[in-house]
Amino acid sequence: MTHPVSAAIDSALDLSVVGGYTRLGLAARRRLPGWPPDSPSGALVGTHVVVTGASSGLGEACVQMLHDLGAHVHLVVRDEAKGEDVARGVDAGLARLTTWRCDLSDLDDVRDLAGRLFEAGVAVRGLVHNAGALPPERTESEQGHEQTMALHVLGPVLLTELLLPALTDDARVVLVTSGGMYTQDLPVDDPEYLQGEYAGATAYARSKRTQVEILGALQERWGAHGVAVYATHPGWASTPGITASLPRFERVTRPVLRSAQEGADTSVWLVATRPRRVGGGLWHDRRPRPTAYLGRHATTPADRARMWDWVAGAAGLAQ
């Protein structure tokens, strides 16, 4: 969005938060000069796209939208029956839809999923890491890591790393993050949330901050394989997860919440758009965004490097 007036309005919407994150902000941006065009019909014909957390909310919307663009969509879910229900809702004949069971917070399960995808010979054009949770109490993954960090960071990083040989030379990897990450510092001194009183919303935002701050390291590592990696935040979207985890917030903001499809728009657009956008950045409403505003919660290169070292070690990546 290079038009100066459009850019100024867009930035003002972002700084207002309510104006930028709700469906009102998306509707306004769509009318501004320079709004990127939608991907053409059939843009993903002949491609395979993997979507995690595909049994509801943003993940379910991604599945429908990617399928509509012609992709063969692979639904990665913890509950296989729910995933198959979503797939049948998209196409009763299950054409170009495959369901895979995996708990993304369990690194052994992630390794097993990667092996099964390899055995199936899937050439992956897009990988949308949408699986998410906001636990009310501190819980740990099978490997003993704090649950939100395992699910939102370690699992996605490991799965992508293991699938690198199966990714096409035009592959795009999308980490679905949250605007809530703007409220938290990078937890470089306490990634497992062992200090202080645990709060689920804080843990969620800390893990999402981590996703964004390791983008540079991920792009440097995976870019050599032809991969472009992005983080996207959907704004405030109406999903079952929001209703269950933040019921008061959902009740107050319900009139202006985005639909799941509106929340998933930029993730799908980044997977489908041509030419491919430069990787390594945070996106919202089809535009790169800063990772901090007014210097609040800004992160140093040294802290980003320390955080990446922890992620790589915890995920078992070769350095």
Rank of each mutant, 00 (worst) to 15 (best):
Y193S: 11
L194G: 07
E142T: 14
G144T: 02
R206G: 09
T148V: 12
D185M: 12
L163F: 07
A201C: 09
G179N: 06
G180A: 12
K208W: 10
A201H: 08
G200T: 07
S178I: 02
T183G: 13
E137A: 11
A199R: 15
L158M: 06
P165T: 05
R206V: 00
E137W: 09
L164I: 12
L134C: 13
E161K: 10
L162M: 10
A201G: 07
V157H: 09
G155E: 09
L127V: 09
H145C: 06
A205N: 15
R172E: 08
V174H: 06
P136Y: 02
E192M: 12
G144I: 13
D185P: 11
S178F: 00
L162Q: 01
A150P: 04
A205W: 08
A203N: 04
Y204S: 01
P156S: 11
H129G: 07
R138M: 06
G126R: 00
R172H: 02
E161R: 12
A133D: 06
V173R: 01
T177L: 01
A133R: 05
A150I: 13
R172W: 01
V176G: 07
A131K: 01
L127A: 02
Y193P: 00
V153H: 05
K208R: 13
V157C: 08
D169V: 01
L186P: 04
G132N: 08
L159M: 04
P135T: 01
P191N: 10
E197I: 09
Q147P: 03
G126N: 04
A205D: 15
Q219N: 11
G216C: 06
P135I: 10
D170R: 13
L159G: 02
L162K: 00
G155F: 00
T139C: 05
L186V: 08
R209F: 09
G144M: 10
L167G: 01
